[in-house]
């Protein structure tokens, strides 16, 4: 798997669209198994950080940087990778949340609620339902596709703003404005407290 992801990243950089799809498929398998492991346990509350998960998947599939300085050449790869990973991550979580919801509706008492915590809206961290967030992003998609992607990258891909700017190929100032607007829009949607 190690080599495969690296090759795919190379092709991605070379501009091959197929590569992104293949990478996504590869990632989806990997991330799902990790997430499944974490949420599979029954006896405690669990948290899962997309940032960490994606980072670990990256290490596993592309190989670790030997040192902090050494990470630099991988930077571009990592950004592309996280882009694909964010999509996969979102997909997995929403599927999982839907399953849990279905369980609950089916009368099982074991169904759990999946929320996204630490969502900073209007300067306060909030905890929002995963499916609500997903739907909100989908709605945002209709208004501004780039901002929707930005949210995906931020919430599920663990990318910071400069990295997002790189993936989306816009300037730092633009990405900041986008982020400000998207956050405002989400805050409105979830109702500011």
């Amino acid at each position: 798997m190690h080599g495969e992801a690296t090759v795919l990243l190379g092709r991605l950089r070379a501009g091959e669209a197929d590569a992104a799809e293949e990478l996504f498929a590869l990632l989806y398998q990997e991330l799902r198994s990790v997430a499944g492991r974490i949420f599979g346990s029954r006896n405690a509350n669990h948290t899962l950080q997309p940032t960490v998960l994606v980072h670990e998947a990256y290490l596993k599939m592309v190989g670790p940087a030997r040192s902090a300085e050494d990470a630099a050449p991988h930077w571009e790869d990592r950004v592309h990778f996280c882009n694909a990973a964010a999509r996969a991550m979102r997909q997995i979580l929403i599927n999982h949340a839907r399953d849990q919801r279905a369980l609950k509706r089916g009368g099982a008492d074991r169904g759990a609620r999946v929320t996204i915590a630490g969502v900073v809206l209007h300067d306060t961290a909030r905890e929002v339902d995963a499916i609500d967030l997903h739907e909100a992003i989908e709605a945002l998609q209709q208004l501004d596709a780039r901002q929707a992607r930005l949210c995906e990258l931020r919430f599920f891909g663990g990318l910071n703003l400069p990295e997002c700017a790189n993936v989306l190929d816009v300037s730092q100032r633009t990405i900041e404005m986008d982020w400000r607007m998207a956050k405002g829009w989400l805050a409105d949607r979830f109702g500011a407290e």
Binding site: T47, R110, R113, I116, A117, V120, H122, D123, L161
Partner: peptide, 18 residues
């Protein structure tokens, strides 16, 4: 609304609560 500060703490995480 805010100025996006450098190093803004933004680290969402998924909580599965039973």
């Amino acid at each position: 609304a805010d100025t996006v500060r450098t190093g803004e703490i933004f680290d969402p995480h998924v909580v599965l609560s039973h």
